[in-house]
């Protein structure tokens, strides 16, 4: 474990907690894409099935359980607890357009044609694009609450830090996992436009709004 990896995990955890707290304290999930959150719950579920088969470390198990638990809690808040505040009219991205091609791709391009390995690959590919419904929603409404921007920034930063971790690991350990690296690169690139807006607007105290 190097510093980039640890910072990435902390950033990821922070993103998840920011979102949970935002919804819980405002009693509202306005501006949040329930579809992205369903996709993230699917990502964690398919990636962390090894919780049932392999013990890696206390840290590993704890983080996995927290990520899964929080992501289901978020989905529950959006679709049950605070359903009345869910902005479904603006959350119109079709999840099947992501899930079906990615399921096919993970069957074709993987490290090993074994059930757990294919599900892990599926989760890596799906994670790289799971934020699209949320970004689509922001572009559709033309704005995002500041707290939602913080969430998106922390979530984008996490994979960027993982990229640094992989560069580090390549030179320090000769380790690289092409599937994770390519997907991580795609994932980070999707956030670049948002990073630009976040730095030029939100950090200067302005609300994130897109030009009409």
């Amino acid at each position: 474990m190097n510093l980039f990896r640890l910072a990435g995990d902390v950033s990821h955890l922070l993103a998840i907690i920011i979102l949970l707290l935002k919804i819980w304290r405002t009693r509202s999930c306005a501006g949040i894409s329930g579809k992205s959150q369903i996709l993230f719950a699917l990502v964690f579920t398919t990636r962390y099935l090894d919780l049932l088969t392999t013990f890696i470390s206390f840290y590993n198990t704890t983080m996995k359980v927290i990520y899964i638990g929080c992501s289901y809690a978020t989905v529950w808040m959006i679709y049950a607890k605070f359903k009345a505040t869910y902005d479904s009219n603006h959350d119109t991205f079709r999840m099947e357009f992501l899930v079906i091609p990615i399921a096919a791709l993970s069957l074709l391009v993987n490290h090993d044609f074994a059930p757990l390995e294919i599900l892990w690959t599926f989760s890596i590919y799906l994670e790289s694009v799971a934020i699209l419904p949320q970004l689509f929603m922001v572009s559709k409404t033309g704005e995002a609450e500041t707290i939602t921007s913080h969430y998106l920034f922390a979530l984008g930063l996490y994979r960027a830090l993982y990229l640094m971790n992989w560069i580090w690991r390549f030179f320090a350990e000769g380790f690289f996992d092409l599937i994770a690296i390519v997907a991580g690169l795609v994932q980070t690139i999707l956030y670049c436009d948002f990073f630009y807006l976040y730095i030029t607007k939100v950090l200067k105290g302005k609300k994130l709004s897109l030009p009409a």
């Binding site: 470390s57 590993n60 996995k64 490290h111 390995e117 993982y162």
Partner: peptide, 10 residues
């Protein structure tokens, strides 16, 4: 060698 796949990362 495929058994050595690193799944420590989250």
């Amino acid at each position: 060698e495929l058994d050595d796949l690193d799944k420590d990362e989250l």
